[in-house]
């Protein structure tokens, strides 16, 4: 395995609670990066985030995230710098369109689209000042094949991918690269040519690679991580 050296880099991970987020944090810590990440301390309310900071083995809470304005970004350690954004936030309804209520739809759009949009918008001025940055949006092959038929989830992910493309065009002149990784979340093992589901570590590995200079010419792409399923 190639070892990446990301010492002196600051990574902002949207959602460090779930399996993939935890694996991303583990991998970037191993590479020496400092990590800011969002965590939900009130699981009953998906809209409340706490910002946490991790540098090596030490970690601490910074405080609640206010999406209305970027003031929560003031007073962060290493605020002078955010090099990498990894948007791994998502929620779904697990329902078909007939059963999805307008409120459930709104919640999926909020978590999967509005929050990433607002956070990216708050952070990109920093990256523009640095004239350097990488943004990764984690998407899903539901955007292509409808996944399990959850209309809200599929729509939010294809919207995210188009946002990703538009962002990559707009931010390229500031040397900010924007890419997406599309994961076959709902694929079943027997439908995947490789015959098994993706692991959290395989998702984190691709994200890590895309955020290093190894991928310095990659921009505006959606990388399918689906074991060959989608185009099979």
């Amino acid at each position: 395995m190639i070892q990446f050296d990301l010492q002196n880099k600051v990574v902002f991970v949207f959602d460090g609670d779930h399996q993939v987020g935890k694996e991303i944090i583990r991998l970037y810590t191993e590479a020496g990066a400092k990590i800011l990440f969002l965590s939900r301390t009130a699981p009953e309310d998906e809209s409340i985030f706490i910002l946490k900071y991790k540098d090596g083995s030490s970690s601490n809470d910074i405080g609640p995230v206010n999406l209305e304005n970027s003031s929560f970004l003031q007073g962060l350690p290493d605020l002078h710098q955010i090099d990498i954004i990894i948007n791994n936030l998502e929620t779904d309804t697990g329902k078909e369109i007939i059963d999805i209520t307008p409120e459930e739809w709104e919640n999926v759009m909020f978590i999967n689209l509005d929050v990433p949009f607002q956070l990216i918008k708050m952070i990109t001025p920093l990256m523009e000042k640095q004239n350097d940055g990488v943004i990764i949006n984690v998407s899903s092959t539901s955007a292509i094949d409808g996944g399990n038929g959850d209309t809200a989830y599929a729509a939010s992910k294809s919207a995210l991918e188009s946002m990703n493309k538009a962002l990559s065009r707009e931010l390229a002149s500031s040397n900010i690269r924007v890419n997406a990784v599309s994961v076959g979340k709902y694929d079943t093992s027997d439908s995947i040519p490789l015959g098994r589901k993706v692991t959290a570590s395989e998702i984190a590995n691709i994200i890590l690679m895309l955020t290093t200079p190894m991928a310095s010419y990659m921009n505006g792409q959606t990388i399918l991580l689906d074991g060959g399923k989608t185009l099979a």
Binding site: S142, I144, D145, A154, S158, A159, E161, S162, M163
Partner: peptide
């Protein structure tokens, strides 16, 4: 873009 996933 959202319309694509919705349709699928």
């Amino acid at each position: 873009g959202g319309a694509f996933g919705l349709m699928r």
